[in-house]
Amino acid sequence: MSIRIDQLPRDKFIMPGTAACPGCPLLIGLRQVMMALNGKMSLVIPAGCSSVIPGMSPATSYGVPTIHVPFASSPAVASGLVSAVRMRGNNGPVVVWAGDGASSDIGFAALSGAAARNEDLIYILADNEAYMNTGIQASGTTPWMAWTTTSPNGKTEERKEMALIMLMHKIPYVATASIAYPLDFIAKVRKASQIRGFKFIHLYAPCPPGLKFDDSYTVKIAQLAVETGIWVLWEYNQGKLTISPPSAMYKDKSKRKPLSEYMKLQGRFSKVGEDAMKIYEAKIDAYWNTILKLSELYK
């Protein structure tokens, strides 16, 4: 499904004047979701930056039907919502737009439950790799060695691989995406909207203040994550797993940019020295290895 940027809808579904920080990746990502579905969806949003970004009621900057819900509840609320609207004959997409804390930590049980029931939802994990809204605390997807306010000397644990965890729920569609590759992401959202059942998209969305980089670098950081191979774009669609085009060339390790190019722009990795960098590169190889093996398995 190839998409041309000049053929994307021009309607705006997010009004100007939001409360988002300069360079916020969530607005970039959410715009792409709304573009993909032409605004014909409803949004379920758990506590997080995206519950603050639309601004103050009675106004909102989100131009689609939206329900803000408690932190751990979004997959369950969405399960009920989609059941109700389907019963009433509405087949439009119900989209959960949730952060990493809501998905990998506090709402993990609800996410697993909704996926195991194969509810007809598109779940987008917009991952900024920490609890940014509450002031940059470490979450289940905060990477190893990253500084946060609750891991001041760098996180000692590994991150959870959410997309792989969701793959093992045997749902029809799992993909990773990046706000720096809108055509890839939009194509994935559109594909997901054509499939019945639970669809999970893990969207990388680097946050300037949280990751400590200049707010003009949001897209650049997201791009570097793919170019260095630390973020791999792949897609599992009903039995078949493939590396997505923007990541395809980085199967070849020699094509990847040095990891330091990605890390040195982010204050959170300031504690990563040469030795840690080597370990990091080995972890990236191991992840690639897993994905490539899975692509052999799910041919």
């Binding site: 639309p54 909102t60 819900v69 439009g92």
Partner: peptide, 13 residues
């Protein structure tokens, strides 16, 4: 709250 329905928001600040 329904897909394609009236673009209302419930529960924001």
């Amino acid at each position: 709250i329904e897909p394609g329905g009236e673009p209302i928001t419930m529960g924001n600040m």
